[in-house]
Design a protein around this nucleic acid. Structure first.
Length: 883
RNA sequence: GGACGAUUAGCUCAGCUGGCUAGAGCACUGCCUUGACAUGGCAGGGGUCGAAGGUUCAAGUCCUUUAUCGUCCA
């Protein structure tokens, strides 16, 4: 047996094993090997990304699932990769350029894109490398990037297919425009943020009348684009105004007052300005009433020539100036404080400008139908189930997806225009001649596609689609998708749609949605708040295993998780505990063959049986909880087994045997220990991959297997010959020991002081068992001796307590504090009587005895007996003390 | 405005199909450097389960209302 270091050194161990696993090709799966496929595709992080706690949790979970599947002998692949994050990456490179005093226009499109590729080559592997530090057992040979050749081909193929099916179209719609990124965004990419804004009440003059009306708006600067004022047709107040004309201030343009049901008479004054080019509802109204559309801003959110005197002014600057001017002209009725939700760019948090713009869209309704069915009929399950509703809500109210982006980094839209015959067509190849009139006067669309247009193909594009491959056939559909709730719309829902459309099959059968990682005050971790905890710092400080184990232990299924540095001590301390337990075993294992663990089941002592029963429970619980994605419960089961069952009880029980027992006893005990430990180690491996591998080798458990990664996964009960009655006896024995220790503690006996104990067992059988098993109790209690006697009666005042196996007395010379004893026992008696009263009340209630299930009643009846017995014992003991 | 989630010990959270005498980790108190481990051991204190109604033999758990916080959607 190799010698374990006194202190575990995670840094060196973790590096060593990850490299070894890679060298040995442990992470790779291949369809050619056949078997039972198990596939997970990673939610591709942004290529600009650096690992944060959300990633750590997310990938940790995937790794656990993957490692379990691998140990179960499944043909496993976990496909990693990154996405090109169009806007984010472009922003990063533009910032770098800015430092050099350049803009992307200075470079031109081609040079700029080259520059982004350079950036990607240099920095793009950061997150993948960080995942390796986490211990992620990704199939790196399959690593993909959404802009690589194959995936780009998939994107073009998808676009052309949908275009040819008329599921992609170009049209002028109100889209979300980010004036900072200078591109359109999808509805999902505009994040609604509640802001304390203002509701401006403006006076507009009615043409030909003295009358002025008051219109309420949150965006006065769009006034220059107003083409109507609208009222609800049923609003009596304004009935007479319908059809009149309004003269807009500043530009003096005349616009009509129209009637439209959309107007909410309760909002503001019941009169709203209509700006069809800057608001989706106004756009709809404009269509209904055939109103002109006047765009008043440029791409950068600066007022344009339609804004008259404000041309060239930033939109918010304009709002301020305009309001001052209107105020001066006496055209402001009032300004109310107004809380409302304003769209912000999800990449740069600039206020989004809704704006009329020609863009490319995917028609979503036809794609949604099969995706709705797949979840409705249970082929795809969300865990926790409630996310079904979120998914369905979005699917059923789906709106067309704006997929064109006015940036350079991304897949260029494969649409070609002929400037001679105006033919428009989609093509996967770079066209130089018109497919209709053969003119060479053709040009490709300037825009690129939304990044999500490539990631929605991920579950099949990573396997080479549109090429057919054995891997695609074998691994698709994947098993579980693990992700956070924030990308259900962006990604999960769209993958289901693309999967159903292209593969005619679901992309995964389970979507596990985990919580969001927050700081200890419940705030989202963010760079700007400076509250993020860097997983790499935690790994440095505590180890990767500690990070992983702690994260899972504190993350309840689907609930948000609050973390702080100290939380990771859980995992570190647990690792230390296991390490030291292993060292202890090693100390006693000289000359012992860990490969010979076939102990004789007839020789199993009560404590052996108890430990093995606990091991079985741990196996069952781990498996059950994994199946239900209850990772915290799975880790808790392992924690509890190792720490309490194994270390606190069994290891302490084993000490006297290992130090003083016969060679036969010693061998038997070591067999039980190594058997249990090595089994539990395998269960723990997916959660703490590094340390378990180190111990697997350090303890020489690695039979013919070279790695614990492929050691057999413990599936179910491993030992027969465990008697439940014996297990229960040991539970009782632990209780007895606890009672004895309490007596010691109450009288402040130091560890050096031994004490004489007397036990009056609850029955003969227990008496016999205790007698046969006395040595272990003597050791646990550091007792001088233990006398077991069913008829034991103390001669004088003795400290005592009642355990499950019987009454325990401790003999100490002349030191008994009789009053304290009486007080203690009386308090206990009161408690027992309280419980007894409750039970009695229950049992005398006929409704209970007749309606409750028989076993529930039986439990209460048994309890009643026990309480009576205990109460009597206590009363007698008190009486005796009183003398 | 709608939907979902949370509210349980000082803190962070479990508690799943109602049977609970409500658990864990951290923090706290006392004792202990004992031959795996002080990143530890043994023992201990600490909760009318946000509030109010209801269903039930039985409610932390189910229903209704409500308050507070959070998330998503409009």
């Amino acid at each position: 047996m190799a010698e374990l270091t006194q202190k575990y050194d995670p840094k060196q161990v973790e590096e060593k094993w990850y490299q070894k696993w890679m060298d040995d090709g442990r992470f790779h799966g291949d369809s050619a090997d056949g078997g039972d496929p198990f596939c997970i595709v990673i939610p591709p992080p942004n290529v600009t990304g650096i690992l944060h706690m959300g990633h750590a949790l997310n990938n940790n979970i995937q790794d656990v699932l993957t490692r379990v599947a691998r140990m179960q002998g499944k043909n496993t692949t976990w496909v990693p990769g990154t996405d090109h994050a169009g806007i984010a990456t472009q922003n990063v490179v533009e910032r770098a350029l800015k430092k050099e005093g350049k803009t992307r226009d200075d470079l031109g499109r081609e040079k700029f894109v080259e520059r982004v590729w350079e950036w990607k080559e240099e920095y793009g592997n950061t997150i993948s490398n960080q995942l390796k530090k986490l211990g992620a057992s990704c199939d790196w040979e399959r690593e993909r990037f959404t802009m690589d050749e194959g995936l780009s081909d998939a994107v073009l193929e998808m676009f052309c297919r949908l275009y040819d099916k008329n599921l992609i179209y170009r049209g002028s719609r109100i889209i979300n425009w980010c004036p900072r990124c200078e591109t359109a965004l999808s509805d999902e990419e505009s994040e609604h943020v509640d802001v304390e804004g203002a509701l401006y009440h403006l006076r507009y003059a009615v043409k030909g009348k003295k009358q002025r009306i008051v219109v309420a708006t949150t965006r006065p600067e769009t006034m220059m684009g107003d083409t109507a004022v609208a009222v609800n047709p049923r609003d009596e107040r304004y009935k007479d105004l319908i059809g009149e004309m309004i003269v807009l201030p500043i530009t003096n343009r005349e616009i009509p007052i129209i009637a439209d049901d959309y107007v909410d008479p309760e909002f503001g004054t019941g009169l709203v300005k209509v700006t069809p080019a800057h608001d989706p509802n106004d756009y709809e109204m404009g269509m209904r009433h055939d109103l002109p559309q006047i765009n008043v801003m440029t791409d950068t959110g600066v007022m344009n020539e339609n804004a008259g005197p404000y041309e060239g002014m930033d939109r918010f600057e304009c709002r301020k100036q305009l309001m001052e001017d209107l105020k001066a002209a006496g055209l402001v009725e009032k300004v109310d404080v107004h809380a409302h939700a304003v769209g912000h760019c999800y990449r740069c948090h600039t206020v989004v400008e809704p704006r009329l713009s020609p863009q490319w869209f995917v028609k979503m309704k036809p794609l949604a139908r099969p995706a709705i069915e797949a979840v409705n009929d249970g082929r795809i399950k969300f865990v926790p189930e409630r996310w079904n509703k979120t998914y369905m809500g979005w699917m059923e109210n789906i709106r067309d997806w704006c997929i064109s982006r006015q940036i350079w980094w991304g897949h260029r839209i494969p649409i070609f225009y002929c400037d001679d015959c105006n033919h428009v067509w989609a093509s996967k190849v770079k066209e130089t001649a018109c497919s209709k009139c053969q003119s060479s006067n053709v040009r490709q669309d300037e825009d690129v596609l939304d990044t999500w247009f490539s990631s929605w193909l991920w579950p099949f594009s990573v396997f080479g689609w549109p090429e057919t491959s054995e891997d695609l056939k074998f691994y698709y559909p994947s098993k579980t998708l693990v992700t956070g709730n924030e990308i259900i719309f962006f990604w999960v829902a769209r993958m289901v749609m693309s999967g159903m459309e292209i593969m005619d099959d679901i992309p995964f059968d389970t979507v596990y949605i985990h919580g969001t990682v927050r700081d200890d005050q419940g705030r989202k971790m963010s760079k700007s708040l400076g509250n993020s905890i860097d997983p790499l710092d935690i790994i440095e400080k505590y180890s990767s295993d500690a990070l992983r184990f702690s994260l899972l232990m504190i993350t309840a299924t689907g609930q948000d998780v609050y973390i702080s540095d100290e939380k990771f001590e859980i995992g570190r301390n647990f690792g230390t505990k296991i390490w030291n337990a292993a060292r202890f075993m090693e100390m006693h294992s000289e000359g012992f063959d860990v490969k010979d663990l076939a102990f004789n089941e007839a020789d199993l002592t009560p404590d052996d049986q108890h430990l093995l029963a606990k091991l079985n429970e741990a196996i069952a619980s781990t498996n059950d909880n994994l199946q239900r994605y209850r990772f915290n419960d799975a880790t808790l089961a392992l924690y509890d087994f190792f720490w309490h069952s194994y270390c606190d009880w069994y290891l302490e029980y084993a000490k006297p045997i290992l130090y003083k027992g016969t060679p036969e006893q010693k061998k038997h005990t070591l067999q039980v220990m190594h058997f249990s430990f090595s089994t539990a180690l395998r269960l723990l491996h997916p959660f703490m991959p590094f340390q378990t591998e180190e111990l697997w080798h350090g303890m020489d458990y690695n039979h013919e297997d070279e790695s614990i990664m492929v050691a057999p996964w413990p599936e179910k009960a491993v030992v027969t010959g465990i008697d439940p009655k014996t297990v229960k006896y040991v539970d009782g024995k632990h209780d007895l020991i606890r009672i004895g220790r309490i007596l010691r503690a109450e009288y402040n006996l130091s560890n050096k002081q031994t004490a004489v104990f007397f036990v009056r067992p609850a029955n003969e059988a227990y008496g016999e068992q205790i007698n046969a098993d006395k040595a272990s109790i003597v050791a646990a209690l550091n007792a001088e001796s233990i006398e077991v006697d069913v008829n034991y009666t103390p001669e004088g005042a003795m400290p005592s307590g009642i355990s499950a196996l019987g009454t325990v007395y401790m003999s100490i010379e002349g030191l008994v504090d009789v009053d304290a004893e009486i007080k203690k026992l009386t308090a206990e008696l009161d408690e027992v009587n309280g419980h007894f009263a409750n039970v009695k009340k229950k049992l005398s209630n006929e409704n209970f005895t007749s309606r409750a299930p028989r076993d529930v009643v039986a439990v209460q009846e048994k309890r009643k007996e026990e309480l009576i017995e205990k109460s009597e014992k206590l009363a007698k003991m008190i009486e005796m003390l009183r003398g």
